[in-house]
Design a protein around this nucleic acid. Structure first.
Length: 538
RNA sequence: GCGGGCGUAGCUCAAUUGGUAGAGCGCCAGCCUUCCAAGCUGGCUGUUGUGGGUUCGAGUCCCAUCGCCCGCUCCA
């Protein structure tokens, strides 16, 4: 199955290049890792994704307004948001077993008193990789049992207890008590600051237990740094935004003061964001420059759960409505343990790509964390005043945050299809077709003269022009056999092909060929625009 | 960033022990075609990812670099 999926992805990538959906950025210079370009068909597809979203979220609702913020903001924004700290993940590697750990997830336990300088581990000091204090606790307990067993500390084995519960790092001292009294003291830390040179010599690897094989923590800053102004001194440092959300939070008061909106309401934005991913991978899925479509929906704290449920469902349904109807789409609620510190609840809309199940969009209840942070860092009042209830409070925020490029890639994957179609002799031949939802298809209608003579091209061009005038992306083609032209449109995902034939010359009717069913319908030439329009709306 | 694999025309691939690169498809110009790709004629296409090195001579060997794929890791 893995092999099959890989080749499916390969075929899709090849088609995207061949037909002009997606190119590697700066290809003639050997490319650049993590950056991609959209070709003539790709840009239409991606624009349609964004326009469908914008129409549904902003234009068709009266409780959400749009916004378009600058990519570079005051650097303090990223201090307040936590990105400068949070996107600064130091990593350590084990030179022996090649494992990699986030330094802040490596917990170090030190056996006080037993650890004289140079005391060889594992008795004196050891490490564990832990995601949470619970995991750290568990690792600690296990280890204490091991030591007790190894050194035959019967009574120790019987009754140790941990006085201080592990909390956020540093984890603090741990006193181990036994029936005969408290005699062993442990220090524990979440790695990071303690992974200094003098410790590294005695630390065992959390995975393979080899001693002294860990490298010093190396920082991977995910923020794109740049300089504002011509001089590159430190006071001019700024960052390309890693998400569009913070621009919305920073403008929350501006929008409130100018739009006459009342809670609950949302602010929506589509725009580029940048992250220095450690390792861009999986085609356009994890790019360093990517586009987001985000809503920050502000509401009363008491209604946050209700709105969270609403958006969780609404966003999931949106993808289904636009063609991700297969069982490859799923909605997954986060476990409490995987929630970010600022989120009370989070659900991911996930899609089963050929390379694995991955997230398209996350819907999170961010509480009042962001407004509170900005209120604190900026010193500006972010409190909402409700005229009716005379209540003052910081609104809660529900954030549906989707990746435009990820959605586009999912639509591409879902659309790719190889089926059978009869050739001119009625023999079944394989056909490659992109079954995009008509609303998203780059080209809505292709217009052909059946043959390039007898006035057919002229009529076809008329229809083509009429379609364009009506705002439909239309494509005219008169070259080669008509079957070939149909197949070319199949690869572009064009839902309808209109053909002018001999009968058109008699009664002004044309055939409309359906991309998926291959069935043809005869309609008046004048009705083509209306026919296509009715079938491409979301 | 680490480990493994890979990099030849737009695409899919070929090129014997190192001897100055080839096929199909596609594309372009015509022809033929009255409804679903691969019918005819002619034509274009590459400093073999890039830069060095070894050699009389390298797509084929060595080094570096860039990019792609898989695993670890990370995330929207």
């Amino acid at each position: 199955m893995a092999e099959k999926s890989e080749s499916l992805m390969d075929k899709l990538v090849a088609l995207c290049k061949r037909r002009g959906f997606i190119f590697q950025s700066s290809e003639i210079y050997g490319g650049i890792n993590g950056f991609w370009d959209y070709g003539p068909l790709g840009v239409e597809l991606k624009r349609n994704v964004k326009e469908a979203w914008w129409e549904d979220i902003v234009r068709k609702r009266d409780d959400i307004v749009g916004l378009d913020c600058s990519i570079i903001m005051n650097p303090k924004v990223w201090e307040a948001s936590g990105h400068l700290a949070g996107f600064n993940d130091p990593m350590i590697d084990c030179k022996s077993c090649k494992a990699r750990f986030r330094a802040d997830k490596v917990v170090i336990f030190e056996l006080k008193g037993a650890l004289v300088k140079g005391t060889p581990p594992p008795i004196g000091v050891w490490t564990a990789e832990a995601d949470s204090s619970e995991e750290a606790n568990l690792a600690f307990s296990e280890r204490v049992k091991q030591i007790a067993k190894r050194f035959n500390l019967a009574e120790f084995k019987k009754g140790f207890s941990i006085d201080k519960s592990l909390s956020s790092p540093p984890l603090g001292d741990l006193e181990v008590k036994t029936p005969s009294g408290s005699f062993l003291l442990f220090d524990s830390f979440a790695g990071d600051s303690h992974l200094t040179a003098n410790y590294l010599d005695v630390l065992p690897c959390p995975k393979c237990n080899a001693v002294g094989t860990l490298t010093a923590p190396r920082k991977f800053n995910m923020m794109f740094k740049t300089f504002v102004g011509a001089s590159e001194d430190s006071s001019a440092v700024a960052y390309l935004r890693p998400e569009t959300a913070q621009g919305i939070f920073c403008n929350y008061k501006n929008v409130l003061d100018t739009s006459r909106l009342k809670l609950p309401f949302g602010i929506a934005q589509i725009g580029k964001s940048f992250r220095n991913e450690i390792n861009p991978r999986n085609y356009t899925f994890r790019s360093r420059e990517f586009e987001q479509m985000e809503i920050e929906f502000f509401c009363h704290p008491d209604e946050a759960d209700k709105w969270y449920e609403y958006w969780r469902n609404e966003r999931y349904q949106w993808y289904i409505r636009h063609g991700l109807t297969s069982s490859k789409l799923r909605l997954r609620d986060h476990e409490a343990s995987e929630l970010a510190h600022y989120a009370r609840a989070c659900a991911d809309v996930e899609y089963e790509f050929p390379f694995g199940i991955s997230e398209l969009e996350g819907v999170a209840n961010r509480t009042d964390f962001d407004l509170r942070q900005h209120q604190q860092f900026s010193g500006k009042d972010m409190v909402y005043f409700d005229d009716e209830t005379k209540e003052r409070f910081l609104p809660y925020v529900i954030e549906p945050s989707g990746g435009v490029d990820r959605a586009t890639l999912a639509f591409l994957c879902e659309a790719y299809c190889e089926d059978q179609a009869p050739d001119e002799n009625g023999v079944m031949q394989s056909r490659t077709v992109m079954k995009f939802h008509p609303r998203l298809a780059p080209v809505k209608v292709a217009v052909f003269p059946l043959v390039k003579k007898e006035g057919m091209p002229e009529i076809a061009l008329e229809i083509h022009q009429a379609a364009r005038t009506a705002g439909l992306a239309s494509f005219y083609d008169e070259k080669g056999a008509v079957g070939r032209r149909y197949r070319r449109q199949d690869e572009a995902g064009t839902p309808f092909c209109v053909t002018v034939d001999g009968q058109t010359l008699q009664d002004r009717t044309v055939t409309v060929r359906d991309r998926d069913s291959l069935k043809q319908e005869r309609i008046p030439a004048e009705k083509v625009v209306q026919y296509v329009r009715e079938r491409i709306t979301g």
